[in-house]
Amino acid sequence: MTLRMRAILMAGLLLPAATLAEPGSRLWATGGVTTIEGSAGGGLVPWALLSSYASDEEWGGTLSLARAEVSDFTLSVTAAALTWRNRVELSVARQTLDLDDFSFALDDAFGLREDELVQDIFGAKVRMFGDVLYQPWGQWSLGVQHKRNRTFTVPEAIGARSANGTDVYLAGSKLFFAAFLERNVLLNLTLRGSKANQSGLLGFGGDGGNSYRAHVEASAGIFLDRRWLVGAEYRQKSDNLSFANEDDWWDLFVAWVPSRHLAVTAAWVNLGDVATQTDQRGLYLSLQGTF
């Protein structure tokens, strides 16, 4: 993405924070933040929460920018989501993985001259029943993420079967009031069916397996007050490609929600081995505007 496009997006993201009225009635931080795949959740794991603060008579949306810089790769995400009456969430996200030094390895091994991988993700999530704050059984949502690689040369060369794939997930989220040291605790559990390699950036399926696998993903966070949430996430992954090992992901995050308009998330992420590069760890930063 060009610098100008980024600047325009950033302006669009901060504009609602400065000018518009309150964006919806749901309580602070109950829209979660934007995941790297565009769905509302934490950083790596989608939650049952729907984006924005649209309550049952309202609609709302979010714009977000995120960047993860791990040892040998940089991932940039631009995403937007729209939520109708706290019932349906539609999202789009573009992921750009900058291959950095790995592009030289690709050139050596496969004669490929690619310096980035780009994937588009179209998401939909429906809140089936419940409410994260008010129902004892929490809130449960069903979601899909349809993922399309813009270029398939690299995933194909390393053994992926398909450029496109669709993840399906069931997520449950529940806030427990005054549960730990009188602080509110948010728990999320997500069950995902997926064929994706590294969330789809390395394509779908492979020589090591080409069927849907069930993955468990979980997050836990504690609200220090209504503006600060700290927690951890875990995401199980498949290992479909024999060319390189694929590890589960986890992160430790802190999210700051100073108002309904703005959310800033910082995380320490551990992606494990990614495409033959070992121990990919680093910082994640995301900025979300809500309107």
Binding site: Y134, F177, A178, E182, R183, L224, D225
Partner: peptide, 20 residues
């Protein structure tokens, strides 16, 4: 304080189905 706020909310939230 945040702790007392949370504890009161925990006591009030079960009334949700009787109100909405």
């Amino acid at each position: 304080g945040t702790g007392a706020q949370n504890r009161l909310l925990a006591l009030l939230v079960p009334m949700y189905p009787e109100i909405v």
